[in-house]
Amino acid sequence: MATRTRRAERREEPLSRERIVEVAVELLDAAGEGGLTFRALAERLATGPGAIYWHVANKSELLDAATDALVAGALEARDARSPKSPRDGIRAVALGLYDAIEVHPWLAVQLATQLSRSPWQPVTLRIFESVGRQVGALGVPENSWFTATSALLHYILGAAGQNAANAVSGRALGPGSSRAQFLDDASKTWEALDPDDYPFTRAVAAQMRDHDDREQFLAGVALILTGMTAAPPSSA
């Protein structure tokens, strides 16, 4: 009886698209895209699937809405910081997306999918516009804007996605394992490689062991910006 009462109380709460997206993000965070079903949503929201379909047509639309909500939040947080220069603006966008993907690893796949299959979607356009405006403000020649912005965007999403995937894999190693231990083991393996076949890999083994993911990510952004402004790429 108590359970039915609680469910009845939950049903009295107004069901909105925003609330549906919020719960969808929770399900995606917990179990990835496979965990997002309308049945699971209905159970979590204590409602029927029909009520959800009134607000969202299908799973694809729901994934797009969840992706859009997180990206909008990341970029709004960047805007609130009022960057003092184009470099600061790009760094802020990069960090906003990095942090969002780190918290929500599934987001990397959704962004990559949209970027490659439907670059006209609002999410892709919003990110491209945020980065592109700053690239233009850096003084990059207009005929190189597309190439420069695309390269920077691919790095940001790719590196952030890889770091998020590494974190997920690290958690899957189980108790007693840690990132530091994993990197130490990998570094020792690199150091034991044949020096004639892998001289470079052996030389950077210690750097790999001691690196910080976030600092490495930002260093990559800075490296691209330095090259972009020193010798802007030509689209011709």
Rank of each mutant, 00 (worst) to 15 (best):
S144W: 00
L138N: 13
L41F: 12
E18P: 01
F182G: 03
A165G: 12
R6Q: 13
A80Y: 04
V71A: 06
S118I: 15
R126Y: 08
P233Q: 10
V123M: 07
E61M: 14
T3K: 14
P86I: 01
A24T: 10
R202F: 13
A236G: 14
R7T: 07
I156R: 02
K59M: 05
A65V: 04
H154A: 13
R87G: 00
N166Q: 13
I127D: 04
P49A: 08
G139Y: 08
L62A: 00
A180Q: 15
D197I: 15
I20D: 05
S178E: 00
Q216K: 12
V204K: 06
P141Q: 00
E61T: 14
W190E: 15
A24F: 10
Y53N: 06
V135C: 00
A51M: 05
T5I: 15
I224C: 02
E76Y: 03
R19H: 06
A65Y: 03
Y98L: 11
D64L: 04
L95S: 02
S118E: 15
V56Q: 07
E43L: 12
T37K: 04
G34L: 04
T226V: 09
L36E: 07
R91V: 03
W190Y: 09
Q162R: 05
L62Q: 06
D79N: 04
T201M: 15
E142Y: 08
R171P: 10
S177D: 09
L75H: 02
D184L: 09
L95H: 04
A24I: 12
G96Q: 08
R202I: 15
M1H: 14
A192M: 02
G158F: 05
A186F: 10
V135M: 03
S16V: 13
W145V: 02
H55E: 05
G89E: 05
G32P: 01
A57V: 13
L152N: 02
Q181N: 12
N166F: 11
T201N: 06
P14C: 10
A2Y: 12
F146K: 07
K84I: 06
E215Q: 06
L183K: 15
D196Q: 14
P122S: 00
